[in-house]
């Protein structure tokens, strides 16, 4: 089975500032893949490039066997941006409906998908409210619901659980695992929370625009000879600084 995502030798800079440096990444079908790394490391830039919203300076990205950017593939990608991009004047339901129609769902599909997605993020009761009146966490949840609206094969979630309470966070993670296990969806999640990373099949550590290490959470711990991903994160930082010192 072909991998869902293949990133090859991708370089990206904003103006003169290099942001990604020779990134290679392969994500298998049905994997839950975590991207961790310090703020400003380039995680968001990387996932945006996978979606085709940013152009690589060099290198190629293939998603579901198609070279990105590719419009048809976008139908199969559910993307949740790091910042909530919602229409505040509209109600939650109108936001969901709008995105559902962009993905060309018919009326029946729209109804069932809106019911499913809003139920998953526990927003069913607030669907008729204007988004302007939502709390921060509610907006985040609506964002997540929109990413799921067209039932895509591939989910790309940029820090999906920031601002969401532990109880709901748990149920969202259980649902992500169910989507992966039962429906074979490929999921990419960026996160700063190590116990979320712990639940991923594979984790890649991004630092200064390069992937320092990747593997299962256990492989990473073995690699750095530590007992938790938190320590992996810290140790990777120290190692990198030492390397820089040597250079």
């Amino acid at each position: 089975m072909n991998p869902s995502i293949i990133v090859q030798k991708v370089n990206k800079s904003f103006g003169k500032k290099p942001v990604l440096n020779e990134v290679n990444l392969t994500i298998g079908k049905g994997q839950l893949y975590g991207l961790i790394g310090p703020s400003g490391a380039g995680k968001t830039t990387l996932v945006k490039m996978i979606v085709g919203m940013e152009k690589a300076n060099s290198g190629t990205i293939h998603v579901l066997d198609e070279k990105m950017p590719n419009l048809a593939i976008l139908q199969e990608i559910g993307y949740m941006a790091q910042s909530n991009a919602l229409y505040l004047e509209l109600t939650g339901e109108e936001n969901l409906k709008f995105f559902a129609s962009l993905f060309k769902l018919n009326k029946d599909e729209q109804r069932t998908r809106i019911a499913y997605a809003s139920n998953l993020v526990n927003l069913t009761a607030d669907l008729k409210k204007r988004v302007a009146a939502y709390s921060g966490g509610m907006k985040r949840r609506l964002s997540l619901a929109i990413a799921l609206i067209q039932d895509p094969q591939l989910l790309i979630l940029d820090e999906p659980t920031v601002g969401i309470d532990p109880e709901l966070k748990l149920s969202i993670w259980n649902e992500l695992l169910r989507l992966k296990n039962d429906e074979g969806k490929t999921i990419i999640v960026t996160t700063h929370v190590m116990d979320e990373a712990e639940r991923c099949d594979m984790v890649a550590m991004v630092r200064d625009g390069a992937i320092l290490a990747s593997g299962t959470p256990d492989e990473l711990k073995d690699l750095y000879h530590v007992g938790s991903l938190d320590e992996v994160f810290l140790k990777a930082g120290v190692k990198q600084h030492e390397n820089l010192g040597v250079n």
Binding site: G52, M53, L74, I77, Y79, A85, L102, F103
Partner: peptide, 14 residues
């Protein structure tokens, strides 16, 4: 400015 245009660009709209 609200980022929704970016968000739109992640859907198959032309």
């Amino acid at each position: 400015t609200t980022g929704t245009l970016d968000r739109l660009m992640s859907t198959p709209i032309r």
